[in-house]
């Protein structure tokens, strides 16, 4: 098992606010890893630091053996990272197909074939392929955001709260798709507030509190930990 992502001493600050405090984190190829934590624990800040959307205040990030700490987000995408951002952020003025084409910006000739793969993964998107993304329901937008991220064939898929604001049924649909990806061998980093769903699918997890990792281990072990149970109930 090769290590695909290795983060050491990661800190993120916004002005005087320290959102992430010296976090260590690693993911091996094929693993699904969850980052859990309540509102404001720093999950998104870690995700943003990993994908190059916020400058790190300290520490380093190595991705597939390459130091990417100072690389811009587009270079990290080229290196094989893909992000499903918090709040989905699909391109509302573009059709479903155009969103997928944007996701495949780096995919070259594979775009047409991968678009078909995505439509097979989310048949709902095929029916709505000429519809503007802004007019999709929240769940459909989430499907689109995931499909868009998969378009370039990433080696690491980072998802930030894919269950946010969705109905329980839709959460199930989305998570079934993520589980599918996991079973096909995709390496996944999943930031979630809703620990129950995340732990049902993750191999390992980190629990964040006020920017620090307070607990880490196999998902099964975390499921039974009282500190995690507290987060379930809180979330």
């Amino acid at each position: 098992m090769t290590e695909i992502l290795s983060v050491r001493g990661l800190s993120v600050t916004y002005g005087k606010v320290q959102a992430v405090r010296s976090v260590d984190l690693h993911i091996t190829s094929g693993e699904t890893v969850a980052i859990l934590g309540a509102n404001g624990a720093g999950k998104s800040s870690i995700v943003r630091a990993l994908t190059g959307l916020v400058r790190v205040a300290g520490g380093d990030i190595s991705f597939q053996g390459q130091d990417v700490t100072r690389l811009s987000s587009d270079r990290r995408a080229a290196a094989g990272m893909a992000l499903v951002p918090e709040g989905r952020r699909v391109f509302g003025d573009m059709t479903v197909t155009e969103n997928l084409q944007m996701g495949g910006y780096l995919a070259g000739r594979a775009v047409a074939e991968r678009t078909e793969t995505m439509f097979a993964l989310f048949p709902r998107l095929r029916e709505r392929r000429t519809q503007l993304a802004a007019t999709l329901s929240g769940g459909e937008q989430q499907m689109l955001a995931i499909a868009r991220a998969l378009m370039r064939g990433p080696s690491l898929l980072v998802l930030d709260e894919p269950s946010l604001g969705l109905s329980p049924i839709m959460v199930q649909t989305i998570y079934r798709a993520i589980k599918d990806l996991r079973d096909k061998g995709m390496t996944i980093l999943l930031a979630e507030q809703s620990a129950s769903v995340a732990l049902s699918l993750a191999d390992r997890a980190y629990l964040l509190e006020a920017g620090s990792v307070v607990l880490e281990g196999p998902a099964r072990a975390l499921r039974d930990d009282p500190r995690v149970r507290e987060v379930y109930l809180g979330g």
Binding site: S73, R76, A77, P85, M94, G103, L106, R148
Partner: peptide, 10 residues
């Protein structure tokens, strides 16, 4: 539309 997200697409 969204420079940040466009960046993450490469």
């Amino acid at each position: 539309a969204d420079a940040e997200i466009a960046g993450t697409m490469g």
